[in-house]
């Protein structure tokens, strides 16, 4: 995977795919924040004061990160944001699986609470997180040599 992303076209394709998916997910939630808030509530992780704020903020944040990823603007920050988001989603889904809670992921619109769907959502989330991780690591490695001042070994004359 690391070698694959060395290829500029593959890296761009993965970036667009990830960005496209997050734009779609953001738009679906943005259109119906109440339905997304209902999905968040099924996780039973947040107090009522936090649910609607998250339902309002997350779609805007997702769309912003996804657009900046697609247009290649502040790419590293966007990838780190997506990576962190997928980690938080994975934690929430894993906790639902552990508690045997039928939740409605709400990731790409609401589909009603379901235990079996939790595994599908978790798998998809980990896959997206994996892609974000590989792309972020690649972007990070690419950014480092250009900024690092390389100090060469000092030649010391042996006595």
């Amino acid at each position: 995977m690391n070698r694959l992303v060395e290829n500029r076209w593959i890296e761009s394709a993965l970036r667009w795919l990830l960005g496209g998916m997050f734009i779609y997910a953001g738009v679906v939630k943005f259109i119906s924040p109440q339905s997304f808030a209902d999905s968040i509530a099924t996780f039973r992780l947040l107090p009522p004061q936090g649910i609607n704020l998250l339902a309002l903020w997350l779609p805007v944040f997702e769309m912003t990160l996804a657009v900046s990823l697609v247009v290649n603007l502040a790419k590293k920050s966007a990838l780190l944001g997506i990576l962190l988001m997928t980690a938080v989603f994975a934690f929430a889904l894993a906790s639902a699986v552990a508690r045997g809670l039928p939740v409605d992921c709400g990731c790409f619109g609401g589909h009603g609470p379901s235990v079996s769907q939790n595994w599908v959502s978790l798998g998809r989330d980990l896959l997206l997180g994996g892609v974000a991780f590989v792309l972020y690591r690649h972007a990070l490695q690419k950014s480092l040599p250009a900024r690092t001042t390389v100090i060469g070994p000092r030649v010391v004359a042996s006595p």
Binding site: L53, L56, W57, P59, V60, F61, T64, L65, A74, S77, L80, G81, L84
Partner: peptide
């Protein structure tokens, strides 16, 4: 990311 998240909250 923090700056962006804050801006997104205001926009939301």
């Amino acid at each position: 990311l923090g700056v962006l998240a804050t801006a997104c909250m205001c926009a939301a």
